[in-house]
Design a binder for these strands. Structure first.
Lengths: 259, 259
DNA sequence: CGGCAAATTGAAGTATTTCAACGTCGGTGG
DNA sequence: CCACCGACGTTGAAATACTTCAATTTGCCG
């Protein structure tokens, strides 16, 4: 791995920030901690490549990673973002069919595959945890599908922003609450956002400005927007549709309570 | 469960057709077989409901199930299909955030959650299998995302048809090879297909007819098409994009070899 | 054969893509 | 310090695609 390796001082502090491990027993934690290495990546570094032999399982400690497919002509097509707590890699030789690249500065907790799997097999609590992790990712992938099936670009963009507010909240300075709104940092550029939402940069730009006209948000900088009216944003995203997703339903409920 | 329960004759035949279990040891198979019950569903029956207490884990033995979100106004929004070998339910109390309904006649292999999880915990080979199953589903969910991010309806429809040909091939009479093409049965109606692909029925209809005009396929019946030129279909789907997905890449390779 | 649901078609209005031009920001080198 | 460059974002205008609504056709079932 081409990255900065950070020597963990010692025992129990390499897993800090991986809240999903919090419930594990002291023994499991000690073993996990012994196995893992922390790596730091600068924005734009390659973390893992599709097809190459990847003998590492990674957990994101902080930052954003891009999951992307590299097309045969060299263009890259982003298919998702990994954040705090997300797992990636070929657990049990499962598939890893895309490249992973850091979008922001990122810290990764990396395990060698073989010893990690061995630990997994003799630690049911850990295995259950990994399984739950996968189930959650699957769930979120389906949320994305709901968002992507909005017919208008502004629906999909609004949906994306809501996901940023819910799933990605409290992560890595993405979101700061102000008195008159939420400031959301967007970790990818318009080209990638366009790919992610199945459209082009020009349409993304126009959709942002349309939402601004509607009073839902203000564009502070191209990749920093202040959400002024979360509720209006939710109805632009097609509230009906989003209410079908529990993750987003929770968010909408929070919004309503505040309003 | 409201369904026809089929009394398994005895030991080892209830798991027939679930090829993913083939590699398990005789002991594991016997235990699994003892735990499971086969249910048969007619098209349109409800298999599981979001939010209700679902103490069953299911594996699809045959047929198509629809995963769908039910909106607050009663409309249903399909988000995916389950086929042969797919698992559903709240393993380890994980999420099940949509309803499941049979789209065709379907056979389900059902396990009570608690004993199934117990078996899972003392049978590492089974646990690994379930984990691989999840990883695969995740992978396919991401393939869907790639398909859904096509900008034109005909791209997405072509992508859908390719998935039908690859993932769903050799399942339940979906696909029959003729001399002049592949006959593909489409297990859902235009309204659901429209939802799945993020558009409306009229556009689906026009896209089908556009692909027919282009010579890629012939519409035999509304829900039965004959693929005449798989390669052309792949290029309509945006070959570049699809080549990024290994599942679809395999399919394209097969097509090319045949051509 | 009638009746119903699903699919198709047409036509008008809207949204998006495309292509081209212009701005803006940050860095580099004179 | 400022001019210039390049990458990225924004804007405009014409072509294209999609949605919407209404009307019609098709296929199926009683």
């Amino acid at each position: 791995m081409v990255s900065t390796h950070i020597a963990g001082r010692d025992n129990a502090d390499r897993l800090v920030g991986l809240h999903q491990f919090a419930a594990l027993s002291r023994e499991a934690l000690t073993e996990l901690n012994a196995l893992c290495r922390i790596h730091r990546y600068e924005p734009g570094q390659t973390v893992a490549v599709d097809g190459e032999h990847n003998d590492y399982i990674g957990f994101v400690k902080s930052g954003f990673l891009r999951m992307q497919k590299t097309l045969s002509d060299g263009r890259q097509h982003i298919v998702g973002l990994l954040v705090d707590g997300d797992m990636f890699g070929q657990v049990f030789s499962g598939p890893l069919h895309f490249d992973i690249e850091s979008a922001t500065e990122a810290h990764i907790c990396a395990f060698k595959r073989v010893p990690f799997e061995a630990l997994l097999e003799r630690t049911p609590e850990l295995e259950r945890l990994v399984m739950l992790n996968l189930l959650n990712e699957l769930d979120r992938a389906r949320d994305w599908m709901l968002i992507l099936s909005g017919q208008k670009v502004s629906c999909r963009l609004a949906g994306f922003l809501l996901v940023m507010c819910s799933r990605f909240a409290d992560i890595d300075h993405v979101l700061t609450k102000g008195r008159d709104g939420l400031d959301v940092k967007i970790p990818i550029n318009r080209t990638d956002l366009a790919h992610l939402l199945g459209t082009r940069t020009e349409s993304i730009s126009r959709a942002f400005h349309a939402l601004q006209e509607a009073g839902d948000l203000r564009i502070l900088k191209p990749n920093l927007v202040r959400i002024l009216d979360l509720e209006a944003l939710a109805s632009h995203a097609g509230e009906e549709e989003l209410l079908a997703s529990p993750n987003l339903r929770d968010l909408v409920r929070v919004i309503k309570r505040r309003a």
